[in-house]
């Protein structure tokens, strides 16, 4: 037992490992891979933030939200619109996008205070769907000027501006990695503090959390706000990777299901799981579609595979929920 404990990675070790991975990603990847793969690695880092936001809600607080594509889309929208309409520095745009997304996240979280488990999954999926409808109604921004600029000709769509210090593809990729690293470290820090302990209590037993004096409602909303902030920033980073006109595809209900499935497959109990989900959902899939015959087949197959993993997980958790009655 003592030997096992000594082998288990300590917190400092994990931070060091994360920093080493971030540095390797920043410098080795552009040196070793083509532009195509650097673009995939950009998506990996973005997806890792997004999947970790799902993991924070589900793995740490026990809230199954399928609605995280909504703050992701809102974050992309806000960043894109402000990038065209203002000259604010890019990092500020991301923070604004995160804050707006956090407000939406709290709204999505409100029904979560009443329902749980599969019901929560359905309610948040419906909310995500309604955000999808709104985004399509307002002609989800492509690249016109001003706040609401809509361009009908694809050829007229301008790419969103990137940070001045990171305008090339490789530099912007590094910027994404740094942003992802900062966000992951911030979340890891919060998890070791008062909110992290409160979330651990809530996940295990809400009645026991209430009996410990934890304002369960408030801490659940904190979790939704922080997770939505993460998704919003991820959305803003994502907007900068798209050369021509953002489409609605990454923010649809199908994307929502793919996201939670990938997050569950990657592992929701630790931030490493978020990174692994990113690798699965972007690099692994790209590898299959590039190198293995019949790429559409693989895309569909991976969705089924991820879906299966998700279902197993939900069934297990619902059973566990049923065991915790309030009378005991």
């Amino acid at each position: 037992m003592a030997g096992l404990k000594a082998l288990l990675p300590r917190r400092e070790f994990q931070v060091g490992a994360a920093a080493a991975i971030a540095l390797a990603a920043m410098f080795l990847v552009p040196a070793l891979f083509t532009g195509f793969w650097v673009a995939r690695f950009s998506q990996t880092a973005i997806f890792a933030i997004l999947a970790s936001s799902v993991g924070l809600l589900y793995g740490r607080v026990g809230l199954v939200s399928l609605g995280q594509v909504a703050p992701y889309g809102i974050g992309a929208w806000v960043t894109l619109r402000l990038a065209f309409a203002t000259s604010l520095p890019f990092p500020i745009l991301l923070i604004i996008a995160g804050l707006v997304a956090a407000a939406i996240g709290v709204m999505i979280g409100l029904p979560a205070l009443r329902v749980s488990g599969l019901y929560l999954a359905l309610v948040t999926l419906m909310l995500a769907a309604s955000v999808e409808i709104v985004l399509s109604q307002i002609k989800f921004p492509n690249g016109g000027g001003g706040f609401s600029g809509v361009v009908t000709q694809l050829s007229d769509i301008a790419p969103m501006r990137r940070p001045g210090f990171a305008s090339s593809d490789v530099a912007y990729y590094r910027f994404i990695v740094v942003a992802a690293f900062i966000i992951m470290m911030a979340v890891a820090f919060v998890l070791t503090r008062k909110p992290g302990r409160a979330w651990a209590s809530i996940r295990q037993s809400e009645v026991s959390a209430l009996a410990a004096g934890i304002d369960v409602t408030r801490y659940k909303l904190y979790a939704f706000a922080i997770a939505a902030f993460m998704a919003g920033v991820a959305g803003g980073l994502f907007a900068g990777t798209i050369p021509k006109g953002l489409s609605l595809d990454p923010f649809t209900r199908q994307a929502a299901i793919f996201l939670i499935a990938a997050a569950v497959m990657g592992g929701i109990r630790s931030l490493w799981g978020g990174l692994f989900a990113g690798v699965l959902a972007t690099l692994f899939l790209a590898f299959l579609t590039q190198n293995v015959w019949g790429h559409q087949l693989w895309t569909d197959f991976s969705l089924s595979l991820f879906g299966f993993g998700l279902l197993m997980n939900l069934v297990q958790n619902t059973k566990a929920d049923e065991k915790k009655g309030i009378a005991s």
Binding site: A200, S201, Q204, A212
Partner: peptide, 27 residues
């Protein structure tokens, strides 16, 4: 008001210290 539960409810994913600290910091 403090209580223990008929089916014990110590928080598995936290350390012993953090279990107790959680109650302290919220009360």
């Amino acid at each position: 008001v403090r209580r223990t539960f008929q089916t014990e409810q110590a928080i598995e994913s936290l350390s012993v210290f953090d279990n107790v600290a959680t109650v302290y910091e919220h009360t």
